[in-house]
Design a protein around this nucleic acid. Structure first.
Lengths: 195, 195
DNA sequence: ACATTACTTGACTATTCGTTCCATAACTGC
DNA sequence: GCAGTTATGGAACGAATAGTCAAGTAATGT
């Protein structure tokens, strides 16, 4: 019917994600974006609306993919506790690499706080997804006796999620895999019962 | 000798800190600064150099004060383990309040990563101070049998520090005091020995 | 009182910002 | 190949940006 796009939408969106991860929202100019994405200025505005819309879409996509990657790590786990362990350790492995880049979700929280309702909503949603996964696994692990029976699984799931955020900041500050792995293991200790 | 400043340097620096905490480095304009600080543009440049210098000085001062506040929470503690507990719980109390604002240190890590050497250095320094405090207390607590004897105190101290960072991001996302307190308590569980 | 010093004020520059306009190019269904 | 439709490229917009300049003003030591 009409002239088709000369670029793949998702492909250039992934590039935008990478730029935003490295420079943040305010730190990224539209010039940075079109240079990295290798598309014209007009194409950017026609395809994604304005800079803010592009950022929100990038954040949505990043969070979704991020959760998928995270949950994918548990595929070989043979027990619910192992699933949680695998998630944390796989993250340590990946985020500790020198070339690893920042978490767009954590960055957006730090940059916007609670001032931007859309950002809050997007992050809350993916936060809930992770929370549900952790809580379900911890409950099951509890039933199998893999974690302390007296543990509040909801609180424990929140704790694991917060540890993960701490690890993300740590990784952004340059922490290596060994350090992150150790932190993951320390967090897992708290799931055990009292002496 | 000559006309004295019409404003208190530290006082307006504290205001700059507050602005940077809320808006980040890139998100803060020099207009934002002089408006909030209530000083003239020239006074800002004459007193603090350029925007970046002001930011670095704000970060240095914030980190120093932040550590002091944090360590001050342990003054009533009667044991090394209690000191660590008091630190985490006092932070939960303070950061969970609705009016609490962001941690400039964590924000700077997220915004700059490892790209700005000065930022890295400043954060590293205060990170080390906290790390030393935690490690010393955990070692002493270990000697008194308050924490697991087989624990690697250095790794445990790193873990506590990372948990604290996670709590900071959590608080920035809007977590309340009760949630943060629970996370602190979960982290402390990991210091106990195995069942 | 006066000279010296330096703070203050506000205008100013040059650049960069996000966004839009417009003419042109490219593709599809007929 | 033509008409209709949409993508593209570049120029241009006003607003905002970080930083500077120069003239006026206030406080101090002598």
């Amino acid at each position: 019917m009409a002239r088709p796009r000369a670029f793949d939408r998702d492909q250039v969106l992934d590039i935008a994600i990478e730029v935003f991860r490295q420079k943040g929202f305010e730190g990224t100019s539209t010039d940075d974006l079109i240079t990295a994405m290798q598309i014209g200025r007009q194409s950017l505005y026609a395809t994604f609306g304005d800079k803010r819309s592009l950022y929100l879409e990038a954040l949505r996509r990043y969070n979704t993919n991020s959760i998928v990657d995270l949950l994918d790590a548990r595929r070989d786990a043979t027990s619910p506790r192992q699933a949680v362990e695998a998630l944390l350790l796989a993250f340590a492995e990946q985020a500790g690499q020198p070339a690893a880049s920042a978490c767009l979700g954590v960055n957006s929280i730090c940059e916007f706080g609670t001032s931007d309702g859309d950002v809050v909503r997007i992050n809350h949603e993916s936060g809930q997804t992770l929370q549900r996964f952790l809580e379900r696994n911890l409950r099951e692990a509890q039933q199998q006796g893999e974690v302390d029976r007296s543990l509040d699984t909801r609180g424990a799931a929140q704790f694991i999620a917060v540890t993960l955020m701490g690890m993300k900041v740590s990784a952004r500050a340059g922490a290596d895999t060994a350090t992150l792995r150790n932190i993951a293991q320390m967090a897992l200790r708290s799931l055990d019962g009292p002496p």
